[in-house]
Design a protein around this nucleic acid. Structure first.
Length: 490
DNA sequence: ATGTTC
């Protein structure tokens, strides 16, 4: 049913009166899409107010819409397609440390311990022994949720203020542009002791990774010869250590998202409104309705939390490296989300671009980059692959407009977690990582997070390049991984 | 993703 229009481009019809879904992926990638993934893409395209859907090479089944898709609407907001981990993001910290400085295994173990001491992993885990300067009380947590990475918040947390300039968005406000509106809503949410306690307990998770596919990874930067100028503009240092992080808004964003799913589902049922394709996971609200505005407030607060979480993690990681290498310097290359809805000019009008496991990809000269440090290059795209085969820093070209200025957010799952646990053999995973000189904090590396649980990264990267969306600037090769798993070396 | 599978 797909029509192939290029080596890595196809279209998928969704209805006679609708523009078809844009599909990005080479033949093998297109073959990898399951039926349920395509059904979810079609359901999303046919949902009210949706003007465009793009399916990316990393697509697999998600909540309502596939993970690995872009859903565009001028009028409607879809909480399911933003997802449960509001503003799940990637960040990259470049250090001035030559790669061979972390060759020695005991040294790597030492850095891993220094990081894990400061940045916890695992569901429900947050800061327990944070120094006073880094501890987050209810008052500061409130400020973080409503202001994001404001100058005051960064100063209070001791995070370099220049890092705000390396963020896709350093802060998010209510639809009326005000952080006071967010404050009023958060106060209302915490109106009873019980609810306030629950909210405040999540603030302690700031500066932590969580579980699942979240990770921190020390990388060696390999700049492509043909991309030296752009790499320099990005602040990448060839042959040096960088640190890649994947994390989001933790329990705080989760609670906001889940509460919204429930509220909107109930509202639909009360009004006798039909769910798109009968799927309650595709509940929506017009952006100018009270429900839409409430959702956008909650999304903004989750996003603010995720932003500060990432910046704090990066500063704690840098502190950990300095414990082992005093004086080492680090600069944030970029911080970019893959689970968020943003207002952007698409097809000539400002629309809400829902990126559900998709990364914004603005080329040089895009109106939203004017006045930023990436105006003349396009911004860095951070694409995690896997710790065995590497990750990538890319930059968008003009062709990205064909995909609503988006690319995939990673390799995408090849095996479900259940299948991965059943099919993949533990000692082969461990051996594979060891052969590539990758160590981790896990004594038992999670099988459902193994490199082979994900799609072939080269094929995914090839799809992006062949579709003309973006080019690789640098490859990142892992030296060690921090993930939620059984703790190492006791 | 989430103190984890309404």
């Amino acid at each position: 049913m797909m029509t192939v229009t290029g080596e890595a481009l196809a279209t998928l019809p969704a209805g006679a009166d609708l523009s078809p879904i844009t599909v990005i992926g080479t033949e093998p990638i297109r073959q990898s899409f399951g039926g349920e993934t395509l059904t979810q893409a079609i359901n999303s395209r046919r949902a009210p107010g949706v003007s465009r859907v793009v399916l990316n090479p990393d697509a697999h089944v998600g909540y309502g819409a596939p993970v690995g898709c872009v859903m565009v609407s001028p009028t409607h907001i879809y909480p399911g397609p933003v997802g449960v981990d509001i503003k799940c993001s990637m960040s990259l910290l470049q250090m001035d440390l030559p790669a061979d400085a972390i060759d020695a295994l005991p040294l790597r173990k030492q850095i891993i311990r220094a990081i894990c001491k400061r940045v916890p992993t695992g569901a429900g885990r947050g800061q327990r022994h944070a120094p006073k300067s880094r501890s987050i009380d209810g008052k500061l947590g409130f400020k973080i949720a409503t202001e994001g990475a404001s100058k005051q918040v960064l100063k209070k947390l001791g995070i370099p203020k220049s890092w705000a300039d390396a963020c896709e968005d350093a802060y998010h406000t209510a639809p009326d542009g005000s952080s006071d509106t967010l404050a009023a809503r958060l106060e209302w949410m915490g109106r009873t002791r019980d609810k306030l306690d629950r909210i405040e307990s999540k603030y302690r998770q700031l500066g932590s990774y969580g579980g699942g596919n979240h990770f921190g990874e020390a990388e060696v930067v390999h700049v492509l010869d043909s991309q030296r100028a752009i790499a320099e503009a990005f602040g990448l240092k060839d042959g040096c250590v960088a640190f890649l992080s994947h994390c989001g808004s933790r329990g705080f964003g989760h609670d906001l998202a889940v509460a919204q799913f429930r509220t909107l589902k109930t509202a639909f049922q009360k009004q006798g409104l039909a769910f798109p394709a009968g799927d309650p996971q595709l509940v929506y609200a017009p952006v100018d309705s009270p429900e839409g505005r409430d959702y956008l407030c909650d999304m903004a607060m989750g996003a603010n939390f995720a932003t500060v979480n990432h910046l704090l993690i990066n500063d704690l990681v840098l502190e950990a490296f300095r414990e082992v290498f005093p004086g080492v310097r680090g600069e944030l290359v970029y911080f970019i989300s893959h689970n968020i809805a943003r207002q952007e000019p698409i097809d000539g009008t400002v629309q809400w671009v829902h990126r559900k496991g998709a990364t914004r990809a603005l080329p040089a000269g895009h109106p939203q980059l004017v006045g930023t440090r990436f105006e003349s290059t396009g911004h860095p795209i951070l694409l995690p692959g896997n710790p065995r085969d590497g990750s990538s820093v890319m930059v968008a070209g003009e062709g990205a407009s064909a995909a609503a200025y988006s690319v995939n957010h990673g390799a995408g799952r090849r095996l479900s977690r259940t299948k991965a646990k059943k099919q993949l053999v533990q000692h082969e995973i461990d051996q594979g990582l060891a052969e590539h000189d990758v160590v981790s904090n896990c004594s038992v590396y999670p099988r459902d997070e193994a490199p082979d649980a994900y799609k072939d990264f080269e094929e995914v990267l090839g799809s992006v390049r062949k579709a003309g969306l973006a080019e690789e600037v640098a490859r990142l090769k892992a030296k060690f991984v921090i993930k939620d798993g059984a703790a190492a070396d006791d």
